[in-house]
Design a protein around this nucleic acid. Structure first.
Lengths: 151, 151
DNA sequence: AATATTAGTCAGTAAAGCTGACCTTAAAGC
DNA sequence: GCTTTAAGGTCAGCTTTACTGACTAATATT
């Protein structure tokens, strides 16, 4: 037996370690939104929706953030548009482009989601301890910035 | 102005903070596998594949881990089976069930994936520092255990 | 002015993912 | 034991997601 280099990595690779809590949170938040009556939504739509910025976002921008093609993003936006979650407005600076902005129904559903995320946040903060949880978030931000993708 | 409770949470919620590095890793690993010649694979298949244990796993078990229905899991397994990545073997203990096990081609592709994950691991460890990276992994494991899902 | 790039849609197709119905075997209740 | 309930899995049918390729219109570049 030799001295261990570091901590036991456990059975999971980093990808899985990130995936498990991520997917659990997503599932809970989506369930909360559905339970609140927003049943005409889907997970892929929600994934895109949460990346829309306050000033409105471009289709291409959203596609890149969610790791899908712009064509797929366009379809998702159209569905959400039909259901009153978002709107397309012409971009004042670029006549080719349009900006996707959250509409009333979208904002309302977003509040439900935010509330559930806050609940989970509290749970996780309690489980890890406040300092450790904050550190975790900071470290994840560092990793997020490592990707050379616009965020 | 009041004293801050803790660190600036940044623009992203925890879900997003987990998603961004997760999805980036997944993308890189998948690209590596494709580049190595395993072009008859898809991301959903790969997500399921990596959850197959050495002794073989049940369809239902895999479905639960990946957050999909058993029907969908069955379809993914059938595709991978056709392409030689996995096999179904009857479960000796339960005549209803079968166990999915990795086949030759699957094991080979798995090695390519593992190598790429190791590369990313090194990068991330370097970016955060060894101690901090290990701590991150430990904390993620704690969160993973919080979900009351079989893992 | 010509050319290349970017934003986005349209069309077509394959894969993923769901619900519901069903069969078979195992477990639980009596 | 026998009956009932639950669990593992597939089949069928359908919608959504997601891709590639082709195209239009507008902006940038040279």
């Amino acid at each position: 037996m030799q001295g261990e280099k570091s901590t036991d990595p456990g059975p999971f690779n980093v990808g899985l370690l990130l995936f498990i809590p991520y997917r659990e949170l997503e599932e809970r938040v989506f369930a909360a939104v559905q339970d609140a009556g927003y049943t005409d939504t889907t997970l892929p739509q929600a994934r895109l929706f949460q990346r829309i910025s306050a000033e409105g976002s471009r289709i291409t921008e959203l596609a890149s953030r969610v790791y899908i093609t712009k064509q797929t993003a366009s379809v998702l936006v159209s569905s959400m548009e039909r259901n009153g979650y978002v709107r397309r407005v012409p971009d004042p600076l670029d006549a080719r482009a349009s900006r996707v902005i959250a509409d009333e129904r979208g904002l309302a559903a977003g509040k439900v989601a935010a509330a559930e995320i806050q609940r989970i946040d509290r749970e996780w903060r309690q489980a890890l301890g406040s300092a450790r949880y904050d550190r975790l978030r900071r470290d994840l931000q560092v990793l997020a910035r490592l990707t050379n993708r616009p965020q």
